[in-house]
Amino acid sequence: MTERIDQVLREWPPGYGGVERVAHELASAWGGTVHSFDVQSRSCAEVDALPVTYERVLLPCTPALARLRLPLPSRRLWKLLRSKTPLHGHLPSPGVLLLLLLARLCRPRRCVSAHWHCFLEHDGSFNGALYSFYQWLALRMLPSMSQVVTTSPLLAEELIRSGCAAERVRVLPCSLSAEQEAACLDLQAAPLNRDRPFTLIFIGRLDSYKRLDWLLQAMTQIPSPWCLEVVGDGPRRRDFQELANALFADGQSRRVRFHGRVDESAKQDLLARSQLLVLPSDRCNEAFGIVQLEAMAAGLPALAFQRRRSGMGWVGALPDLEWDQTPQALPEVLKRLAADVQWRQQLGEQARERYLQRFARAIWLRSLDAMRAR
């Protein structure tokens, strides 16, 4: 029987974010208990997006100071810190970083590891300065961890460049659940139809850094009929809807449909009738984009920008899709894809093949076993 591993993260898994989904898949494979601060009170307010089979524990934490939450002294915290069970924490989160360091101090011989999901960018604001200080501190604390796991070779290179010992850095790309993978792989590519509108899909939180506005503006350059399916919700939804209405007033040959949050079945239906996924995030805190895996497994190419300290562009890279992976190049590549149905189908086949060769669940499980064996 393999040794169980406990985890700690800021939000309540599985949630809808990438960090929560990664923690969920690890817990599904490792067992163990997942500890969370549940900052957004998801344990009370939301139905789990994915089936949960492991134990979850809510850790008391301080009231919010900006976005900062730290663990409060409690019996649950003390039990976690004194445990001998290996502990794996998900960063970025100052509270999680503090907890990992306390666990290391309480039991110096305990296996304590960190999952580095992304680097943060300084935007010039006071909060941005605080994030930069946290990241500076975190990078100096990582060498004290038993190992550091990250999601792409690009992030691994950046961690090593930042001072982490190469032998302690492991690359474990994100994964779909077995059920999600099977559902996506079961989707069949639609037959070639040059009269069918070019259908794109965006999946993500409707917030500023997702840059749905850039995608909408790029779509104005496509002369042929198209449809954009927008899946997700968030604080900028109304702004994006107003922008879409302003840009595409006719609503006939060029349509944008906002679906909000949908269940897995509805998402599969939307993927089945789409031909391309676009993830136009402009910050390196979007470092992977698990939705790209869903699209690729379903036979859709995925477009994302290549940014310093991010693996987004690496995830969906295809042999026959050469473009600059910059916001400036997005309108032109969309025009080319809209005009060439056969090329889109070829890219879809390559996307699924890349998924099967590099990101498939069976490959992820083998990588996970190899990582634990070290």
Rank of each mutant, 00 (worst) to 15 (best):
G204S: 06
R10L: 11
R283D: 12
E229M: 03
L59K: 04
A165L: 12
I203W: 02
Q325R: 15
V278I: 14
L26V: 04
F202I: 10
P14W: 02
R237W: 03
G15I: 03
T199R: 15
L200A: 03
E181F: 00
R358C: 03
G311D: 12
G234I: 09
V315P: 02
G89E: 08
E11P: 00
C174V: 07
Y134A: 01
N127P: 11
L271E: 02
A249Q: 12
L159K: 10
E25L: 09
L155D: 03
D340K: 09
W314Y: 14
Q7S: 12
F305I: 13
V19H: 00
A339F: 10
L155R: 01
V333L: 06
G232E: 09
L9E: 01
L303V: 13
L247Y: 05
R352K: 10
A27S: 13
Y355K: 01
L270R: 13
R196I: 07
F119G: 04
P235D: 12
A182W: 06
A329K: 11
Q217L: 14
L321E: 02
P73D: 04
M1D: 13
P13L: 00
E349R: 15
V315E: 04
R308K: 15
V57N: 02
Q345V: 07
G311A: 07
L279T: 03
L77F: 08
